[in-house]
């Protein structure tokens, strides 16, 4: 698709992209949905959302990539989900507990957990996301070592837990003590950084549905994370993905688990409110 030489990122561009997207997406898309969700396109439930409709990342991928997510068996991410299921019942740490000791059956106890992250943690006085909550449980309750952010163990556990919430619409609190974090995340989303001087919004708000070189830009929704990326040939965390985007625009990426990424995770979850949790997804 030939790119036009727009010299300004403008409201016109955003409107144009919104009108053009449905036409681009209808052509050549696989008919079915990913397994476990009824839809990949919803009206956002967030008040004041810039879009009339939001699409999961699945919508923007080629039919072959989409097909990898239509069947839980064929979805390579499930290799990690299986490991997560085993780890759930595995005793670890000085307190001699497993996740199951307190949380019993994950299908019950984690039924909505994955749809509401990040959420406020009173004791810490800040929000925590799923990775951080898991490690809090490990260190605080199980008296076990925390797992490294991108370790197979933590990836397996987050994908297993998120799977239990699959199909649940994303919903996050952004008021009260969460408000300053929401505002911070929104600021990061719209602030240009790096040598290429670009903000998240430049691609994911202004030009979603269009090509950047050989890649089709998504809206940057996060409902599918942790995600099996064909590029990584393994499952990976949302913060890893954030880091990659920042590196691509030649900015110094924030660290995984940082306050900046936590704020951004909250804000992008708000942008995806209403979309069903789709994790663990397959993306390019």
């Amino acid at each position: 698709m030939e790119l036009t030489g727009k010299s300004t990122v403008s409201v016109f561009g955003a409107v144009f992209a919104t009108l053009l997207v449905p036409a681009l997406l209808i052509a050549g898309q696989a008919q079915a949905n990913p397994q476990g969700v009824d839809t990949v396109k919803v009206t956002p439930t967030s008040e004041g959302h810039p879009f009339a409709e939001i699409y999961s990342g699945w919508y923007f991928r080629s039919p072959e990539t989409q097909r990898l997510q239509e069947d839980d068996f064929e979805n390579p991410a499930f290799l990690w989900v299986e490991q997560g299921e085993e780890l759930w019942s595995e005793v670890d740490g000085a307190a001699n507990k497993s996740c199951a000791s307190c949380h019993n059956d994950a299908a019950d106890s984690m039924a909505t957990a994955g749809a509401n992250m990040p959420k406020w943690n009173e004791a810490l006085g800040k929000p925590v996301n799923l990775e951080q909550q898991i490690n809090l449980c490990r260190t605080g309750r199980m008296e076990a070592e925390p797992w490294k952010w991108e370790s197979n163990e933590l990836l397996s556990m987050t994908s297993y837990v998120k799977l239990q919430s699959r199909g649940q619409p994303v919903e996050v609190a952004t008021d009260g003590p969460m408000k300053p974090w929401f505002d911070k995340g929104k600021e990061i989303y719209y602030t240009r950084v790096g040598q290429l001087d670009m903000a998240c919004s430049n691609c994911h708000e202004d030009y979603y549905g269009q090509q950047i070189r050989a890649d089709r830009l998504s809206q940057g929704q996060t409902s599918g994370f942790p995600t099996y990326r064909l590029k990584w040939q393994k499952i990976g965390s949302l913060h890893r993905r954030f880091k990659g985007c920042m590196a691509n625009i030649r900015a110094t990426p924030y660290k995984v688990g940082s306050d900046e990424f936590l704020a951004l995770e909250l804000y992008t979850a708000w942008r995806g409110q209403g979309l069903p949790v789709e994790a663990p997804a397959v993306r390019n």
Binding site: F73, F78, L79, E82, Q83, N152
Partner: peptide, 10 residues
């Protein structure tokens, strides 16, 4: 992966 696990659907 720490342990190599096969999955089969038949």
């Amino acid at each position: 992966m720490a342990t190599v696990k096969p999955r089969v659907k038949a």
